[in-house]
Simulated scan of single mutants.
Amino acid sequence: MLTNTLVAHSSDTEKADFYKKTYLHLALSVLAFIGVETILLRTVPVEVIAMMFGQRYTWLLIIGVFWLASVLASRWSLSQSRSTQYFGLGFYIVLEAVIFLPLIYMAAATAGGQVIFQAAMLTIAMFAGLSIVAFTSKRDFSFLRNIMIIGGFIAIGLIVAGSIFGFDLGLWFSVGMVILASAGILYETNKLQNTYTTGQYVGASLQLFASIMLLFWYILRILMSRRS
C-alpha cells in the first residue's frame, strides 16, 4: 500500500525524496522511450510505418485507441498497488513509442538525426526552464487546468477535422500546441507540490512524461517544417 500523506504536508526530507524519485522515474521513462523507439525503428517494416501516416482514417483510429489507453495508463499509475503503477507507466511508454514511430521515421529520413537531436535539446531546455519557474514562483498554476482542457478539446477537434478533410494544420497550430504543452508542464509541476501524496511518484512521473512528449512532438514538427 502507498503512503497517503500529501507532499505539501510532509516533511522536507519526505518532499526531497518524493521529488528525487519522481524525476528519476521521469529520466528512466525517457531512456526507456528511446530504447523502445529504437527497437521499433529497426523491427517494424517500412510498409507498416507508411500505413500509419499514409491513411487518414487509420491515423484517427490510432489516436482514438491511444487516448483511451492513455486514460487507463494514468489510472493504473496512480493505483494503490505499486506493481499496477509500474505497469501503467510502462504501458504508456510503449504507447508513446508507437505513436512517435512515423514522425521519428520521417524526421530521420528527410532531415537526418540532427533535427531529432535539436528538438530533444530544445525540449529539455524548455522543460528545465518551466520547471524552475514552477518551483521558484509563488504563483498557483492550477488555473491552467481549464485552459488545458479547453485547448485540448479544440486541438483534438482540429486534428480530427484535418484528418477527415485532408488539410494541413500548419506551423501556427504547432506553435499553439507548444504553448499548450508548456502550460501542461507548469500545471503538472505545480501538482507535484499540492496534489500528489508521497507514494505517487510513479504517477507523477507519467504525467510529466506525457507533457514532455507532447512538447517534443510539436517542437520536432516545427523544426521539420523549417527544413522542408
Score class of each variant (00 low, 15 high):
residue 66 F to N: 04
residue 150 I to M: 10
residue 195 T to R: 12
residue 26 L to G: 00
residue 3 T to P: 00
residue 63 I to Q: 15
residue 137 S to I: 09
residue 39 I to A: 12
residue 171 L to K: 10
residue 34 I to G: 12
residue 61 L to H: 00
residue 118 Q to Y: 14
residue 115 V to H: 06
residue 93 I to R: 05
residue 128 A to N: 01
residue 38 T to G: 13
residue 58 T to E: 14
residue 45 P to M: 03
residue 50 A to E: 14
residue 118 Q to G: 00
residue 94 V to L: 13
residue 105 Y to N: 10
residue 108 A to I: 15
residue 146 N to H: 01
residue 171 L to S: 03
residue 86 Y to C: 07
residue 61 L to V: 12
residue 14 E to V: 05
residue 118 Q to H: 09
residue 135 F to Q: 05
residue 82 R to G: 08
residue 193 Q to S: 15
residue 160 V to W: 00
residue 147 I to S: 06
residue 7 V to K: 04
residue 59 W to M: 14
residue 149 I to P: 00
residue 164 I to W: 05
residue 14 E to P: 03
residue 158 L to D: 00
residue 103 L to F: 13
residue 117 F to V: 14
residue 85 Q to R: 09
residue 48 V to N: 10
residue 207 Q to E: 12
residue 216 F to N: 00
residue 21 K to C: 08
residue 221 R to A: 13
residue 183 A to I: 10
residue 50 A to N: 12
residue 188 E to P: 05
residue 74 S to D: 13
residue 126 M to L: 15
residue 63 I to L: 15
residue 56 R to N: 14
residue 109 A to I: 01
residue 43 T to E: 07
residue 169 L to F: 09
residue 172 W to Q: 08
residue 62 I to W: 09
residue 223 L to A: 04
residue 202 V to R: 08
residue 40 L to F: 11
residue 182 S to M: 10
residue 121 M to Q: 10
residue 65 V to P: 02
residue 165 F to H: 00
residue 44 V to D: 10
residue 184 G to Q: 06
residue 139 R to G: 05
residue 146 N to V: 13
residue 185 I to S: 08
residue 90 G to Q: 07
residue 32 A to E: 11
residue 51 M to V: 11
residue 108 A to G: 08
residue 98 V to G: 03
residue 134 A to R: 02
residue 224 M to R: 13
residue 43 T to W: 10
residue 77 S to N: 02
residue 46 V to P: 01
residue 225 S to D: 12
residue 202 V to H: 06
residue 64 G to P: 01
residue 60 L to Y: 01
residue 25 H to E: 01
residue 21 K to F: 06
residue 193 Q to A: 15
residue 104 I to G: 02
residue 143 F to R: 12
residue 130 L to A: 01
residue 118 Q to V: 12
residue 162 G to A: 08
residue 211 S to N: 07
residue 169 L to G: 08
residue 6 L to W: 09
residue 1 M to Y: 07
residue 96 E to T: 14
residue 78 L to Q: 09
residue 44 V to K: 10
residue 8 A to R: 14
residue 97 A to G: 08
residue 32 A to Q: 05
residue 43 T to F: 14
residue 81 S to Y: 06
residue 31 L to E: 00
residue 103 L to M: 14
residue 148 M to W: 06
residue 100 F to E: 01
residue 136 T to L: 12
residue 152 G to P: 07
residue 181 A to W: 02
residue 119 A to L: 01
residue 226 R to V: 13
residue 1 M to A: 10
residue 49 I to L: 06
residue 80 Q to L: 07
residue 15 K to W: 07
residue 57 Y to T: 10
residue 43 T to V: 15
residue 121 M to D: 00
residue 113 G to D: 04
residue 195 T to E: 15
residue 114 Q to S: 15
residue 192 L to I: 08
residue 40 L to S: 02
residue 84 T to N: 00
residue 65 V to Y: 07
residue 72 L to I: 15
